[in-house]
Amino acid sequence: MSQLFYLKECSSTNDEISKFLLYQNSDFIGLHTFNQTKGRGQYGNVWTPTAGKNLAYTLAVKTQNILCSDFIFNYYTAIIVRDFLAKLADYDVKIKWPNDIILKGKKIVGILIEKKKINQNKYFIIGTGINILQEKFDEISNAGSLLTQTGHRFDLEELAFTLHEYLAEKLKNIPSDQEILELFNLNLFRKDEISVFEIEKERQNGIIRKADEKGELWVELEDGMHSFYHKEVKLLY
């Protein structure tokens, strides 16, 4: 059973969802808004949406129902969101390690997964920010939206509902770790392509070869293979 709640405005759906978990017994509880004022991104980044143009959506899932590691769960969440948007946009969508979603070279989704204990239960709090109708991104040159990348105006409410139903269904039966890892690498942005990276404030050419089960990214540089955790390397695109 799943439930989806709506707030006209909130600071962060990841923070506000705790209020909806106190008296609900559903396995999947979602919260969405089209006006999030203080969204957070992965590892302390700030996600700044435009009111009425984009979707901030959070899904709470009890950790006891998730048997894979945190890294693999992070990958699987990115895969589900990628698959959902690929069907919606009818275009090849990629995952920029560790969990940004890229459509035609532009980031349209950011995902933030947190663990919280609420009312004696432990949850994965999956926060997803999707740029849907926004057309201008000021100085953020690598950001885009479903509108800018497809030319199609999607209905915000319908998209929120179908996303919630899709994620809840896909999280009921999680594939094996190996299958998740293979799917993640199959859809990895700029895999096996020469790219530019920023490493310790210096730019280097390299080739992404794979993401592994420990959450590390393997990049082939001029002096050989290197593995990185998030924030140790920045892909410039």
Score class of each variant (00 low, 15 high):
G41L: 07
L7D: 13
C10R: 00
I126A: 05
S26A: 13
F189Y: 15
Y6M: 03
D223K: 12
I29H: 02
P98M: 02
G39S: 08
N25W: 01
I29W: 04
I113T: 13
H230S: 14
P175G: 09
L146Q: 07
L167P: 01
A51I: 01
I126L: 09
E222H: 09
I102T: 10
L22N: 04
K104F: 11
L103F: 04
L156D: 03
Q64N: 13
L167N: 11
L235T: 09
I101A: 10
F161I: 15
G206F: 07
T33H: 07
L103C: 04
K136V: 11
L159Q: 05
F137M: 04
G144D: 11
E200S: 12
I72A: 03
Y75P: 13
V219G: 07
H32A: 10
E165L: 11
R82F: 00
G110M: 06
E9K: 14
R82S: 11
E169Q: 11
L171Y: 11
I66E: 05
K106Q: 06
M1S: 09
K96A: 03
T128D: 00
I199V: 13
V233T: 12
N74W: 04
I174Y: 05
N14A: 13
E9V: 12
G44F: 05
I199N: 02
Q134M: 05
L59F: 01
E200Q: 14
N185L: 08
I130T: 14
N74H: 10
K19L: 11
E193R: 14
N35L: 07
L188N: 12
N185G: 08
E216H: 06
L103E: 06
I199A: 02
D192H: 14
N35Y: 06
Q149E: 15
I208K: 03
Y229W: 04
Y76S: 06
V81D: 08
E135D: 08
L159I: 05
L235R: 12
Y57R: 06
S12L: 03
